[in-house]
Design a protein around this nucleic acid. Structure first.
Lengths: 209, 209, 209, 209
DNA sequence: TGATAAACGAGACGGTACGTCGTGTCTTTGT
DNA sequence: ACAAAGACACGACGTACCGTCTCGTTTATCA
């Protein structure tokens, strides 16, 4: 299988890449996005803050958004590694509602962490308008998270707690998407109570039984 | 209440404003966003395409995003006027599920209209990162739409079709937000079948009765 | 006759040109060439020293060398204007040898003036390698000077002091070119005695009479 | 007397030097200067064309100009060797005027050879602005040539064909410098007729006898 | 004949300057 | 007085080379 390769530029030699520079670039990108915002974060600014030549950025990333995406992914990896390799699943205590509420409460807390907020908003925004990046953003960050809900819901179906004819990939959106939208678009406040309510509504429906 | 006003510049005299230029600017902005995308749409580009001096834009709008927001709102107004002043409510045939499915199917169709897609994505994206504009975007475009669902759900509550203890402002998100997220972030395909399913899940819940 | 015009860029409007910026650019260019040398003189450096945007330079001049050529011509004009509009001819006292020696002695003094040296060397150097600029340099700066010698020599021919069959355009090179070469290429010292000798040799020949 | 040596770098070991690379670098440098001109000739370009690492150039030469100077000197050596080790003197047939005209005609022909033109113009230009290189250029290339004229003129003085009080080093400039200036600065056409005239004027003077 | 040390090709790196584009302000010239 | 036109100072873009600095890989002496 041939490597896809731009005609104009030779592939840079990955083995010679400076780990030092990469780290410095990640740090600078995240710091700048947090400090001055995504639109005012420039490649020149990242380079200068990282103590790196601009070309070193252009050599390895095609755009500002790609730098940030990788930096953010790396941040997540680090966090995961620091947290001692937690299993990345939604716990299954047998009580579906409680399990979902717990995860969503944790998500709410995370969304409020300013270190995560700035870069993830920026990436989401860029992804809306830049489809290619958007797909990568979704594939690398969003889908893996959503898959956890799919797994938990399937387990619930096996246990008879969720109707067998329900599509878990759609079902999860009933509580995840509202939270996502409120957070992204400021269409409403987010709180533990709010996500608890979402779970209740979604699991039991809106109509009287 | 005094108008906040820059010290250096007197407020432009609105009565003398050229309607001709405004229209040309709206058209140019929408056309450019559709043709080259939001990031490559520039104030200079809009001015030149509209046959207008740059200053005419800077005199009346504070930023590219504001031009686009107004242009888009105007587009909606025009469409509404053309469609013969329809009453802007969700019909109430007595069948809540059917009514919701109908509106959502229409929304799906609208979201696929390329004339709406480019500017609304652009505005949503800008709003994610620029909170001030985001709030205006939500207040002027999103909330009015959502309020229609609130009204319809309240009517359903009065008719006993929705549990009385349900908060309609939250309830509507169960079917609206998933659609919004799939469309904005390309997290999944959108179709009439999909929105029908959302309504069914939301109204009846995911757990067996 | 149509104006020749680049396809890519509209002709800038000369009437709106900022005289202030032009002067500042001339001054900065000459100062930098004198201070750091031509190769280390950059467009960015000139712009920054002149307190001017780079684009203002690129708008009006195609290259660093062109800026310097105009700046140098302007310097000459100013000097001439300051010197009270001297007639720009070689005096004719009837004594050809004395007249030539006087002019060449003055030239020697001028060539030693550091304010003239740096830019004129730089322009000469650039002209060697960039034929187009070289021709302009010669036409605007060199030829007018040489023409003065042609005129004086023709007068001398009329007076019978120079053989009638001599081509003045070639004859002048016998004393002008050696001085030019010594100065430009450091092939030898230049002094009043040296130029006097050149005139004597050229007028009377090298062979015994 | 100790060799002056940079503190940071040991002297490279000349005995291990790759003759292959040196030749390739000379060839590449001369070819590039001829093809794209001196300013667009870059060290990277030379290295890549020569199939050589950049460091190999930086190890042995301090600058682009030095590479070219050596390459050009080498070219001259090669030409001389190929021409069968001609004695490098101006012939002395007893007829000074004829001998000088012959040599100058040959020089005119050489100056028109495109293989010599590009590099020698480039070196001359660089020398104007970079005094250190200029002196080397003159010492290695120009002065040896001029010395030949000094020798021939001295012989002529011994033979009584040139006035004894004439300084040969200055005298030669009467015909050599005009040719040099016309060629370098395009101040006039160069031809056999032109150099013949220069010799006649210089030997016999411009004034009637 | 193998060890070893330098030169070598390759090219990543921190930088500087390039020439271009867009920003938002300001000024000039019509209407 | 607003509008078109566009020059202006400014700042970022993405590219090209600079000269330095590793990386393995030859290659050429010496032990």
């Amino acid at each position: 299988m041939a490597q896809k390769q731009s005609a104009t530029h030779p592939a840079p030699d990955t083995t010679r890449r400076s780990e030092r520079s990469r780290r410095a670039i990640y740090d600078a990108a995240l710091a700048l996005v947090a400090e001055v915002g995504y639109p005012k974060t420039t490649i020149e600014g990242i380079a200068s803050r990282a103590g790196v030549g601009k070309q070193t950025i252009y050599r390895w990333w095609p755009s500002k958004a790609d730098v940030l995406l990788e930096a953010f992914l790396d941040l997540g990896d680090q966090a995961a590694r620091a947290a001692g390799r937690q299993p990345y699943t939604i716990p299954d205590t047998g009580d579906l509602a409680a399990d979902l509420k717990n995860v969503l409460r944790a998500t709410v807390d995370e969304l409020r962490d300013p270190a995560f907020e700035a870069p993830s908003r920026a990436l989401a925004a860029e992804g809306l308008v830049n489809e290619e990046l958007g797909r990568r953003f979704v594939a690398k960050l969003l889908e893996p998270q959503l898959q956890l809900y799919v797994d938990r819901l399937r387990a619930a179906q096996d246990a008879g707690d969720v109707r067998a004819d329900v599509d878990p990939r759609i079902a999860l959106e009933l509580f995840v998407s509202p939270l996502a939208q409120r957070w992204l678009q400021h269409t409403g406040p987010i709180s533990h109570g709010y996500t608890d309510t979402l779970v209740d509504y979604a699991l039991n429906g809106l109509t009287p039984r």
